[in-house]
Amino acid sequence: MTQVITALRHRQGVAFAQLGLTPAAARALRELDPDHPLPARDLAGRLGCDRSNVTVLVDKLEQVGLVERRTDPADRRQKTLVVTERGRVERDRVTEVMSDSRLLSGLTDRELSTLRDLVRKMSDEDCSEPCGPE
């Protein structure tokens, strides 16, 4: 399992670097909804990290023109994160990278089914109910 995760992270890291992003910045961009601006504290919650870490990530995304900080019209004391037009394009590319299944392309349908069943069994074994969505 560790080898699969390592291979996946490596492929994604290379692809993100080609986009000019770190894996963390790519994940932050992916978590932002282009149609619904989000306060940085909410992004921190989605990423499961400290707000100070999000500040650094947003600074990077803002520097390359993918995100803008704007005053929230409903609460002028608060800033929201808005995905720019260029950010929308890059976000779509990040989504493609994150859903790239080339790592699994050598497996038959039967092997993919077996792998899915094994991963489900491993991840749900210690849960009284399914740990994640079906």
Rank of each mutant, 00 (worst) to 15 (best):
Q12N: 08
G13A: 11
R51G: 03
L8C: 01
P37D: 05
S123P: 01
P130A: 00
L8G: 00
L57V: 00
G20M: 09
R41Y: 13
R30W: 11
D59H: 14
L118Q: 08
H10D: 05
T6E: 12
E85F: 08
R30G: 07
E125R: 08
R91K: 15
R110T: 05
T114D: 08
G20K: 11
K121R: 08
P73R: 05
Q3N: 13
Q63T: 01
Q18G: 12
G106T: 10
T84R: 12
R120W: 10
S99I: 07
E68W: 04
E31S: 09
P133M: 11
P37E: 02
D72S: 13
E68G: 06
L107Q: 05
E111M: 04
V119P: 02
R51P: 08
L61Q: 00
A74C: 00
A24V: 13
R120K: 01
P39S: 03
L104I: 10
S128M: 10
Q18V: 03
R116E: 07
T22N: 08
V94T: 04
G132F: 13
L112Q: 05
R76N: 14
R51E: 14
E96V: 05
R93F: 10
L107D: 00
T6V: 03
V94K: 03
I5W: 09
G132E: 13
R102C: 09
T55S: 15
V83N: 02
R116V: 03
R51V: 13
S101G: 12
S123W: 12
L21N: 06
L38E: 15
Q63K: 12
A44S: 11
R69F: 04
D42L: 13
A25Q: 11
V64T: 05
L104E: 07
S101E: 14
V14W: 01
L118I: 04
D109R: 12
V97F: 05
G65W: 00
L66M: 06
R86P: 07
P23H: 06
R77L: 08
E125N: 04
C131T: 08
G45H: 01
V4M: 03
V4F: 03
G45S: 11
V56R: 14
L112K: 06
G65P: 00
D109G: 11
D35S: 07
D100P: 02
